[in-house]
Amino acid sequence: MEYSKEVMLRYNNPQNVGSLDEMDPDVGTSVVGAPSCGDVIKLQIKVDENGKISEAKFKTFGCGAAIASSALITEWIRGKSTEEAKQIKNKEVAEYLSLPPIKAHCSVLAEEAVDKAIKDYFTKKNGGVDGKIN
């Protein structure tokens, strides 16, 4: 598989790899994909008092495209409000990384990971009710 420079940059030196404390009420966590499908992304966000994503961390089991997609999306959502982060579409990720069409699902998974982490954050905040976001 021939990947773009942008993919290789993130595969070789991914930013934002790691974990946040799942128990922290300001942290939202998501795990998307399945080992049997060959892709799993774990993504975590920390939201500050102004509603902005102050930290974003990920860990990915998957191909180069999956690693690069999750790394890129964590770069993009940092400093954004949860509302803004939800606007990021998988197509933008795929285009930025020049993903081959067969790898488009990796960017879909990254978008899904962000959406689910935000949802988890609000579910925790609102005591089980997933607030204004939906």
Binding site: S19, V40, I41, K59, I67
Partner: peptide
């Protein structure tokens, strides 16, 4: 493995 959620 250092960046894999499954390994973690």
């Amino acid at each position: 493995r250092a960046i894999s959620p499954l390994w973690e």
